[in-house]
Design a protein around this nucleic acid. Structure first.
Lengths: 193, 193
DNA sequence: AATATAATAGGACGTACGTCCGAATGATAT
DNA sequence: ATATCATTCGGACGTACGTCCTATTATATT
Protein backbone atom coordinates (compact mmCIF):
# COMPACT_ATOMS: atom_id res chain seq x y z
CA UNK A 1 0.00 0.00 0.00
CA UNK A 2 3.07 2.25 -0.15
CA UNK A 3 3.01 4.70 -3.03
CA UNK A 4 4.56 3.26 -6.15
CA UNK A 5 6.18 6.19 -7.86
CA UNK A 6 5.38 6.15 -11.51
CA UNK A 7 2.12 4.29 -11.16
CA UNK A 8 -0.52 6.93 -10.77
CA UNK A 9 -3.36 4.51 -10.14
CA UNK A 10 -1.54 2.91 -7.22
CA UNK A 11 -0.52 6.30 -5.90
CA UNK A 12 -4.19 7.25 -5.76
CA UNK A 13 -5.21 4.10 -3.95
CA UNK A 14 -2.39 4.58 -1.46
CA UNK A 15 -3.49 8.15 -0.85
CA UNK A 16 -7.07 6.99 -0.40
CA UNK A 17 -5.93 4.53 2.23
CA UNK A 18 -3.92 7.20 3.99
CA UNK A 19 -6.86 9.60 4.07
CA UNK A 20 -9.16 6.85 5.22
CA UNK A 21 -6.88 5.92 8.09
CA UNK A 22 -6.77 9.55 9.18
CA UNK A 23 -10.38 10.68 8.86
CA UNK A 24 -12.65 7.79 7.98
CA UNK A 25 -14.81 7.31 4.91
CA UNK A 26 -17.51 9.73 5.94
CA UNK A 27 -15.04 12.58 6.24
CA UNK A 28 -12.89 11.95 3.20
CA UNK A 29 -13.54 13.69 -0.09
CA UNK A 30 -12.07 12.91 -3.47
CA UNK A 31 -10.33 16.27 -3.23
CA UNK A 32 -8.61 15.14 -0.05
CA UNK A 33 -7.39 12.05 -1.82
CA UNK A 34 -6.22 13.98 -4.87
CA UNK A 35 -4.28 16.37 -2.63
CA UNK A 36 -2.70 13.56 -0.67
CA UNK A 37 -1.69 11.89 -3.92
CA UNK A 38 -0.42 15.14 -5.39
CA UNK A 39 -2.64 14.72 -8.39
CA UNK A 40 -5.45 16.57 -10.12
CA UNK A 41 -8.95 15.74 -8.99
CA UNK A 42 -9.96 14.62 -12.43
CA UNK A 43 -7.35 11.87 -12.34
CA UNK A 44 -9.48 9.98 -9.88
CA UNK A 45 -12.30 9.89 -12.38
CA UNK A 46 -9.89 8.99 -15.15
CA UNK A 47 -8.57 5.93 -13.36
CA UNK A 48 -11.51 4.74 -11.31
CA UNK A 49 -14.62 6.26 -12.81
CA UNK A 50 -16.44 6.87 -9.58
CA UNK A 51 -15.89 7.16 -5.88
CA UNK A 52 -17.67 3.87 -5.35
CA UNK A 53 -15.40 2.04 -7.72
CA UNK A 54 -12.32 3.61 -6.20
CA UNK A 55 -13.27 2.34 -2.77
CA UNK A 56 -14.24 -1.02 -4.15
CA UNK A 57 -10.68 -1.33 -5.38
CA UNK A 58 -9.37 -0.15 -2.02
CA UNK A 59 -11.37 -2.75 -0.15
CA UNK A 60 -9.92 -5.49 -2.32
CA UNK A 61 -6.41 -4.21 -1.67
CA UNK A 62 -6.92 -3.92 2.08
CA UNK A 63 -8.44 -7.36 2.53
CA UNK A 64 -5.73 -8.87 0.33
CA UNK A 65 -3.11 -7.22 2.51
CA UNK A 66 -4.75 -8.57 5.65
CA UNK A 67 -4.93 -12.11 4.31
CA UNK A 68 -1.33 -11.97 3.13
CA UNK A 69 -0.11 -10.64 6.46
CA UNK A 70 -1.89 -13.39 8.33
CA UNK A 71 -0.55 -16.00 5.96
CA UNK A 72 3.01 -14.73 6.34
CA UNK A 73 2.64 -14.69 10.08
CA UNK A 74 1.44 -18.27 10.08
CA UNK A 75 4.20 -19.40 7.74
CA UNK A 76 6.99 -17.84 9.73
CA UNK A 77 5.80 -19.57 12.90
CA UNK A 78 7.60 -22.82 13.57
CA UNK A 79 5.30 -25.63 12.52
CA UNK A 80 5.62 -27.19 15.96
CA UNK A 81 4.02 -24.20 17.64
CA UNK A 82 1.29 -23.67 15.06
CA UNK A 83 -1.89 -23.45 17.10
CA UNK A 84 -4.92 -21.21 17.20
CA UNK A 85 -2.82 -19.17 19.59
CA UNK A 86 -0.92 -18.09 16.52
CA UNK A 87 -4.04 -16.19 15.66
CA UNK A 88 -4.06 -14.47 19.04
CA UNK A 89 -0.47 -13.45 18.64
CA UNK A 90 -1.13 -12.21 15.14
CA UNK A 91 -3.90 -9.92 16.36
CA UNK A 92 -1.77 -8.69 19.22
CA UNK A 93 0.94 -7.82 16.77
CA UNK A 94 -1.50 -6.24 14.35
CA UNK A 95 -3.01 -4.15 17.12
CA UNK A 96 0.35 -2.95 18.33
CA UNK A 97 1.99 -2.19 15.01
CA UNK A 98 -0.84 -1.89 12.52
CA UNK A 99 -3.72 -0.30 14.33
CA UNK A 100 -4.04 2.02 11.35
CA UNK A 101 -5.11 -0.95 9.27
CA UNK A 102 -7.53 -2.10 11.92
CA UNK A 103 -9.16 1.31 12.01
CA UNK A 104 -9.58 1.26 8.26
CA UNK A 105 -10.98 -2.25 8.39
CA UNK A 106 -13.63 -1.23 10.90
CA UNK A 107 -14.46 1.86 8.93
CA UNK A 108 -14.99 -0.24 5.82
CA UNK A 109 -17.03 -2.73 7.81
CA UNK A 110 -19.38 0.00 8.93
CA UNK A 111 -19.66 1.07 5.33
CA UNK A 112 -20.64 -2.46 4.41
CA UNK A 113 -23.52 -2.40 6.86
CA UNK A 114 -25.41 -0.20 4.40
CA UNK A 115 -24.05 -1.16 1.01
CA UNK A 116 -24.75 -4.55 -0.50
CA UNK A 117 -21.80 -4.56 -2.85
CA UNK A 118 -19.41 -3.63 -0.05
CA UNK A 119 -21.03 -6.21 2.16
CA UNK A 120 -20.43 -8.90 -0.42
CA UNK A 121 -16.78 -7.96 -0.74
CA UNK A 122 -16.12 -8.02 2.98
CA UNK A 123 -18.12 -11.11 3.79
CA UNK A 124 -16.00 -12.89 1.21
CA UNK A 125 -12.95 -11.66 3.06
CA UNK A 126 -14.38 -12.85 6.36
CA UNK A 127 -15.01 -16.26 4.93
CA UNK A 128 -11.47 -16.55 3.63
CA UNK A 129 -9.93 -15.67 6.97
CA UNK A 130 -12.36 -17.85 8.86
CA UNK A 131 -11.59 -20.80 6.59
CA UNK A 132 -7.88 -20.29 7.13
CA UNK A 133 -8.43 -20.41 10.89
CA UNK A 134 -10.46 -23.55 10.48
CA UNK A 135 -7.49 -25.17 8.79
CA UNK A 136 -5.33 -24.23 11.74
CA UNK A 137 -7.81 -25.89 14.05
CA UNK A 138 -8.02 -29.04 12.02
CA UNK A 139 -4.24 -29.35 11.92
CA UNK A 140 -4.32 -29.87 15.64
CA UNK A 141 -5.96 -33.20 16.28
CA UNK A 142 -6.01 -32.88 20.06
CA UNK A 143 -7.93 -29.65 19.73
CA UNK A 144 -10.45 -31.19 17.40
CA UNK A 145 -11.01 -33.83 20.02
CA UNK A 146 -11.18 -31.35 22.87
CA UNK A 147 -13.90 -29.31 21.20
CA UNK A 148 -15.73 -32.07 19.42
CA UNK A 149 -19.03 -30.67 20.62
CA UNK A 150 -18.62 -27.73 18.26
CA UNK A 151 -17.98 -27.78 14.57
CA UNK A 152 -14.54 -26.45 13.60
CA UNK A 153 -16.26 -23.88 11.42
CA UNK A 154 -18.20 -22.61 14.41
CA UNK A 155 -15.10 -22.47 16.56
CA UNK A 156 -13.14 -20.60 13.94
CA UNK A 157 -15.89 -18.02 13.62
CA UNK A 158 -16.00 -17.66 17.37
CA UNK A 159 -12.27 -17.12 17.49
CA UNK A 160 -12.23 -14.61 14.69
CA UNK A 161 -15.17 -12.75 16.17
CA UNK A 162 -13.50 -12.57 19.55
CA UNK A 163 -10.31 -11.21 18.05
CA UNK A 164 -12.17 -8.59 16.07
CA UNK A 165 -14.28 -7.55 19.01
CA UNK A 166 -11.42 -7.27 21.44
CA UNK A 167 -9.39 -5.27 18.95
CA UNK A 168 -12.36 -3.01 18.36
CA UNK A 169 -12.72 -2.47 22.06
CA UNK A 170 -9.04 -1.68 22.27
CA UNK A 171 -9.37 1.09 19.71
CA UNK A 172 -11.68 2.84 22.13
CA UNK A 173 -9.47 2.68 25.14
CA UNK A 174 -8.99 6.34 25.87
CA UNK A 175 -6.07 5.72 28.23
CA UNK A 176 -4.44 3.89 25.36
CA UNK A 177 -3.11 1.37 27.81
CA UNK A 178 -1.78 -1.30 25.52
CA UNK A 179 -0.95 -3.66 28.35
CA UNK A 180 -4.59 -4.03 29.27
CA UNK A 181 -5.54 -4.87 25.72
CA UNK A 182 -2.73 -7.40 25.37
CA UNK A 183 -3.97 -9.01 28.57
CA UNK A 184 -7.47 -9.11 27.15
CA UNK A 185 -6.20 -10.87 24.06
CA UNK A 186 -4.29 -13.25 26.27
CA UNK A 187 -7.42 -14.05 28.24
CA UNK A 188 -8.85 -15.79 25.18
CA UNK A 189 -6.33 -18.50 25.94
CA UNK A 190 -8.66 -19.78 28.63
CA UNK A 191 -10.44 -21.35 25.70
CA UNK A 192 -7.53 -23.72 25.14
CA UNK A 193 -6.78 -24.59 28.74
CA UNK B 1 -37.10 5.29 21.45
CA UNK B 2 -40.66 5.12 20.17
CA UNK B 3 -42.05 8.45 19.07
CA UNK B 4 -43.69 10.31 21.91
CA UNK B 5 -46.55 12.20 20.35
CA UNK B 6 -46.60 15.73 21.59
CA UNK B 7 -42.93 15.91 22.37
CA UNK B 8 -41.30 17.23 19.24
CA UNK B 9 -37.74 16.86 20.49
CA UNK B 10 -38.22 13.18 21.22
CA UNK B 11 -40.00 12.66 17.93
CA UNK B 12 -36.94 14.03 16.15
CA UNK B 13 -34.54 11.79 18.06
CA UNK B 14 -36.70 8.77 17.32
CA UNK B 15 -36.76 9.65 13.64
CA UNK B 16 -33.00 10.08 13.68
CA UNK B 17 -32.65 6.61 15.13
CA UNK B 18 -34.97 5.17 12.53
CA UNK B 19 -33.06 6.77 9.68
CA UNK B 20 -29.76 5.68 11.16
CA UNK B 21 -30.91 2.08 11.41
CA UNK B 22 -31.97 2.16 7.78
CA UNK B 23 -29.11 3.95 6.07
CA UNK B 24 -26.26 4.65 8.47
CA UNK B 25 -24.82 7.95 9.55
CA UNK B 26 -22.90 8.64 6.37
CA UNK B 27 -26.07 8.41 4.27
CA UNK B 28 -28.51 10.23 6.50
CA UNK B 29 -29.23 13.92 6.05
CA UNK B 30 -31.08 16.24 8.38
CA UNK B 31 -33.74 16.45 5.68
CA UNK B 32 -34.23 12.69 5.88
CA UNK B 33 -34.72 12.95 9.60
CA UNK B 34 -37.12 15.87 9.31
CA UNK B 35 -39.19 13.95 6.77
CA UNK B 36 -39.25 10.83 8.91
CA UNK B 37 -40.35 12.92 11.88
CA UNK B 38 -42.95 14.81 9.84
CA UNK B 39 -41.42 18.10 10.84
CA UNK B 40 -39.87 21.13 9.21
CA UNK B 41 -36.14 20.99 8.67
CA UNK B 42 -35.57 24.08 10.75
CA UNK B 43 -37.04 22.35 13.79
CA UNK B 44 -33.91 20.27 14.05
CA UNK B 45 -31.84 23.39 14.42
CA UNK B 46 -34.36 24.84 16.84
CA UNK B 47 -34.17 21.87 19.21
CA UNK B 48 -30.63 20.63 18.81
CA UNK B 49 -28.62 23.44 17.29
CA UNK B 50 -26.41 21.33 15.10
CA UNK B 51 -26.19 17.91 13.55
CA UNK B 52 -23.34 17.04 15.87
CA UNK B 53 -25.36 17.89 18.96
CA UNK B 54 -28.36 15.98 17.70
CA UNK B 55 -26.31 12.84 17.30
CA UNK B 56 -24.60 13.39 20.60
CA UNK B 57 -28.03 13.23 22.17
CA UNK B 58 -28.89 10.15 20.15
CA UNK B 59 -25.77 8.34 21.29
CA UNK B 60 -26.68 8.99 24.91
CA UNK B 61 -30.18 7.63 24.33
CA UNK B 62 -28.97 4.53 22.51
CA UNK B 63 -26.32 3.60 25.06
CA UNK B 64 -28.79 4.21 27.87
CA UNK B 65 -31.25 1.90 26.15
CA UNK B 66 -28.59 -0.79 25.79
CA UNK B 67 -27.57 -0.59 29.42
CA UNK B 68 -31.16 -0.68 30.58
CA UNK B 69 -32.00 -3.66 28.38
CA UNK B 70 -29.04 -5.59 29.71
CA UNK B 71 -29.94 -4.68 33.26
CA UNK B 72 -33.53 -5.80 32.78
CA UNK B 73 -32.38 -9.02 31.22
CA UNK B 74 -30.10 -9.71 34.15
CA UNK B 75 -32.76 -8.86 36.67
CA UNK B 76 -35.41 -11.09 35.16
CA UNK B 77 -33.03 -14.07 35.18
CA UNK B 78 -33.45 -16.26 38.25
CA UNK B 79 -30.63 -15.40 40.63
CA UNK B 80 -29.66 -19.03 40.78
CA UNK B 81 -28.79 -19.12 37.10
CA UNK B 82 -27.06 -15.77 37.00
CA UNK B 83 -23.76 -16.47 35.32
CA UNK B 84 -21.70 -14.89 32.57
CA UNK B 85 -23.76 -17.12 30.31
CA UNK B 86 -26.55 -14.66 30.97
CA UNK B 87 -24.51 -12.27 28.89
CA UNK B 88 -24.27 -14.78 26.05
CA UNK B 89 -28.01 -15.30 26.10
CA UNK B 90 -28.59 -11.57 26.19
CA UNK B 91 -26.53 -11.05 23.06
CA UNK B 92 -28.24 -13.94 21.33
CA UNK B 93 -31.58 -12.37 22.10
CA UNK B 94 -30.40 -8.92 21.07
CA UNK B 95 -29.09 -10.29 17.81
CA UNK B 96 -32.29 -12.11 17.02
CA UNK B 97 -34.78 -9.45 18.00
CA UNK B 98 -32.85 -6.20 18.05
CA UNK B 99 -30.31 -6.41 15.28
CA UNK B 100 -31.47 -2.95 14.30
CA UNK B 101 -29.96 -1.61 17.51
CA UNK B 102 -26.78 -3.53 16.96
CA UNK B 103 -26.40 -2.06 13.50
CA UNK B 104 -26.85 1.43 14.89
CA UNK B 105 -24.37 0.72 17.65
CA UNK B 106 -21.72 -0.35 15.17
CA UNK B 107 -22.42 2.62 12.98
CA UNK B 108 -21.94 4.94 15.93
CA UNK B 109 -18.80 3.09 16.93
CA UNK B 110 -17.29 3.67 13.54
CA UNK B 111 -18.21 7.32 13.89
CA UNK B 112 -16.35 7.41 17.18
CA UNK B 113 -13.19 6.19 15.51
CA UNK B 114 -12.75 9.67 14.07
CA UNK B 115 -14.41 11.99 16.55
CA UNK B 116 -12.99 12.52 20.00
CA UNK B 117 -16.22 13.65 21.60
CA UNK B 118 -18.09 10.64 20.23
CA UNK B 119 -15.24 8.40 21.30
CA UNK B 120 -15.48 9.71 24.84
CA UNK B 121 -19.22 9.08 24.96
CA UNK B 122 -18.97 5.53 23.74
CA UNK B 123 -15.93 4.52 25.73
CA UNK B 124 -17.87 5.59 28.80
CA UNK B 125 -20.66 3.31 27.69
CA UNK B 126 -18.22 0.45 27.15
CA UNK B 127 -16.82 0.92 30.60
CA UNK B 128 -20.26 0.84 32.17
CA UNK B 129 -21.22 -2.40 30.47
CA UNK B 130 -17.85 -3.97 31.11
CA UNK B 131 -18.09 -3.07 34.80
CA UNK B 132 -21.53 -4.63 34.98
CA UNK B 133 -20.16 -7.84 33.51
CA UNK B 134 -17.35 -7.77 36.02
CA UNK B 135 -19.92 -7.72 38.80
CA UNK B 136 -21.55 -10.78 37.30
CA UNK B 137 -18.22 -12.55 37.33
CA UNK B 138 -17.46 -11.61 40.89
CA UNK B 139 -20.83 -12.84 42.04
CA UNK B 140 -19.76 -16.31 41.04
CA UNK B 141 -17.01 -17.39 43.41
CA UNK B 142 -16.24 -20.66 41.65
CA UNK B 143 -15.61 -18.73 38.44
CA UNK B 144 -13.29 -16.30 40.16
CA UNK B 145 -11.33 -19.27 41.37
CA UNK B 146 -11.37 -21.00 38.02
CA UNK B 147 -9.92 -18.00 36.24
CA UNK B 148 -7.74 -16.65 38.97
CA UNK B 149 -4.89 -16.21 36.50
CA UNK B 150 -6.76 -13.33 34.90
CA UNK B 151 -8.15 -10.25 36.52
CA UNK B 152 -11.96 -10.09 36.47
CA UNK B 153 -11.71 -6.80 34.64
CA UNK B 154 -9.69 -8.45 31.90
CA UNK B 155 -12.11 -11.35 31.66
CA UNK B 156 -15.09 -9.08 31.43
CA UNK B 157 -13.49 -7.12 28.64
CA UNK B 158 -12.67 -10.32 26.85
CA UNK B 159 -16.25 -11.50 27.15
CA UNK B 160 -17.74 -8.23 25.99
CA UNK B 161 -15.31 -8.04 23.11
CA UNK B 162 -16.15 -11.54 22.01
CA UNK B 163 -19.86 -10.84 22.10
CA UNK B 164 -19.47 -7.66 20.09
CA UNK B 165 -17.19 -9.29 17.56
CA UNK B 166 -19.37 -12.32 17.02
CA UNK B 167 -22.45 -10.17 16.64
CA UNK B 168 -20.61 -7.96 14.19
CA UNK B 169 -19.60 -11.00 12.19
CA UNK B 170 -23.19 -12.14 12.23
CA UNK B 171 -24.39 -8.92 10.68
CA UNK B 172 -22.28 -9.80 7.65
CA UNK B 173 -23.60 -13.27 7.13
CA UNK B 174 -25.08 -12.95 3.68
CA UNK B 175 -27.01 -16.21 3.93
CA UNK B 176 -28.57 -14.75 7.07
CA UNK B 177 -28.38 -18.13 8.68
CA UNK B 178 -29.24 -17.33 12.26
CA UNK B 179 -28.59 -20.87 13.45
CA UNK B 180 -24.92 -20.61 12.62
CA UNK B 181 -24.59 -17.36 14.53
CA UNK B 182 -26.40 -18.74 17.55
CA UNK B 183 -24.01 -21.68 17.48
CA UNK B 184 -21.10 -19.29 17.33
CA UNK B 185 -22.38 -17.47 20.39
CA UNK B 186 -22.85 -20.81 22.10
CA UNK B 187 -19.28 -21.78 21.34
CA UNK B 188 -18.08 -19.11 23.77
CA UNK B 189 -19.34 -21.43 26.45
CA UNK B 190 -16.17 -23.48 26.04
CA UNK B 191 -14.69 -20.75 28.20
CA UNK B 192 -16.74 -21.92 31.16
CA UNK B 193 -16.34 -25.66 30.71
C1' DA C 1 9.70 14.34 -37.82
C1' DA C 2 4.83 13.61 -37.94
C1' DT C 3 1.02 11.55 -36.06
C1' DA C 4 -1.80 9.13 -32.85
C1' DT C 5 -2.73 7.78 -28.33
C1' DA C 6 -2.45 8.08 -23.35
C1' DA C 7 -2.02 10.84 -19.32
C1' DT C 8 -2.57 15.05 -16.75
C1' DA C 9 -4.48 19.34 -15.26
C1' DG C 10 -7.81 23.07 -14.56
C1' DG C 11 -12.08 24.28 -13.96
C1' DA C 12 -17.18 24.31 -14.56
C1' DC C 13 -21.78 22.04 -13.61
C1' DG C 14 -25.57 20.69 -11.00
C1' DT C 15 -26.77 18.90 -6.62
C1' DA C 16 -27.27 18.07 -1.81
C1' DC C 17 -25.92 19.48 2.41
C1' DG C 18 -25.97 22.03 7.23
C1' DT C 19 -27.24 26.29 8.94
C1' DC C 20 -30.24 29.81 10.09
C1' DC C 21 -33.28 33.95 9.10
C1' DG C 22 -37.85 36.08 9.17
C1' DA C 23 -42.55 35.48 9.13
C1' DA C 24 -46.65 33.04 10.79
C1' DT C 25 -49.00 30.52 14.23
C1' DG C 26 -50.08 28.90 18.81
C1' DA C 27 -50.08 29.20 23.79
C1' DT C 28 -49.92 31.72 28.17
C1' DA C 29 -50.08 35.38 31.28
C1' DT C 30 -51.78 39.95 32.45
C1' DA D 1 -58.48 41.64 24.73
C1' DT D 2 -53.69 42.48 24.52
C1' DA D 3 -49.05 41.55 25.02
C1' DT D 4 -45.40 38.28 25.49
C1' DC D 5 -43.11 34.39 24.63
C1' DA D 6 -42.45 29.74 22.60
C1' DT D 7 -43.11 26.93 18.62
C1' DT D 8 -43.47 25.89 13.79
C1' DC D 9 -42.63 26.60 9.05
C1' DG D 10 -40.95 27.76 4.33
C1' DG D 11 -37.26 28.98 2.14
C1' DA D 12 -32.76 31.20 1.24
C1' DC D 13 -27.55 31.22 1.76
C1' DG D 14 -23.05 29.73 1.18
C1' DT D 15 -20.34 25.69 0.85
C1' DA D 16 -18.49 21.31 -0.37
C1' DC D 17 -19.23 17.48 -2.94
C1' DG D 18 -18.94 13.96 -7.10
C1' DT D 19 -18.81 14.12 -11.87
C1' DC D 20 -17.06 15.10 -16.14
C1' DC D 21 -15.81 18.23 -20.22
C1' DT D 22 -11.98 20.50 -22.65
C1' DA D 23 -7.49 21.81 -23.38
C1' DT D 24 -2.70 20.80 -22.78
C1' DT D 25 1.30 17.96 -22.26
C1' DA D 26 3.87 13.61 -22.44
C1' DT D 27 4.65 9.14 -24.60
C1' DA D 28 4.68 5.85 -28.14
C1' DT D 29 4.29 4.44 -33.07
C1' DT D 30 5.26 4.92 -37.80
Amino acid sequence: MTADKGNQADKIIAAAFECLSLKGYANVSLRDIANEAGVALSQLHYYYGSKKDLFKELILKVSEKFSNDLENYINKSPAASLTPLTLVKYFQEAFTHNSKYLRVLYDLLSLALWSDTTKQLLSGFFNDVSNRIEELLLDNSTLVEQFNVYKPKTLSRMLLGSMLGIALQGLFDTNNNNNEIMDTFNATKVIFD
